[in-house]
């Protein structure tokens, strides 16, 4: 079934206005990986509070009685889930499925998705933000880091595209 997507330039303008309103209201931009980080820190805290105290990474988000889940990005990402669901419902795209190229099996697609996620999660922490938090938001405020991260992400993906073509085309 073919479903209709919004004109990309119109979607881009709307996304830009969402980002602009984030700046106008809160002085900060959008993000995504930071919310997963909050979940990771909370999970580690539940399993082993001692381990959190001994790590200067986790304590950045838990010190002084701070709760990692009470973060701006956690609430924003909950909104993304709701917004994505509403859009999918309106467009008739709600469906539980594994999307993959006919050349590869569902299983292979899922393994690749898992590997890609692990890399993206690790890279987002090293790079201090992902495509939305570092690249998109960073470029809108003209941050050097934003431009550098964007070029590194897209440059690498283009460079590796040839080797992974069988999974996509």
């Amino acid at each position: 079934m073919k479903t209709k997507y919004m004109n990309p330039y119109l979607a881009g303008v709307l996304l830009g206005l969402v980002l602009l309103s984030a700046f106008y209201f809160t002085g900060r931009g959008l993000g995504a990986s930071g919310a997963v980080k909050s979940v990771v820190v909370s999970a580690v805290e539940v399993v082993s509070p001692e381990h959190v105290t001994n790590s200067d990474y986790y304590t950045k988000y838990t010190g002084d009685g701070k709760s990692p889940m009470k973060s701006w990005l956690v609430f924003e990402v909950l909104g993304v889930l709701v917004g994505g669901f509403l859009s999918g419902a309106l467009a008739g795209r709600l469906k539980l499925k594994v999307e993959h190229h006919p050349n590869i099996t569902s299983k292979k697609r899922l393994i690749l998705a898992g590997i890609g996620g692990i890399l993206f999660g690790f890279g987002s922490q090293l790079g201090r933000g992902c495509t939305s938090g570092s690249a998109l938001t960073g470029m809108a405020v003209l941050s050097l880091a934003g431009f550098v991260t964007m070029m590194a992400i897209f440059g690498t993906a283009f460079a590796l595209a040839y080797f992974l073509r069988k999974n996509w085309i």
Binding site: L112, I115, G116, L119, F120, G123, A157, L164
Partner: peptide, 17 residues
């Protein structure tokens, strides 16, 4: 970090958002 994310993007097909 960007290079690792770029690899994750083309392998996994998504970014976090």
């Amino acid at each position: 970090g960007g290079i690792i994310m770029g690899a994750g993007f083309i392998i996994g097909g998504f970014c976090p958002g």
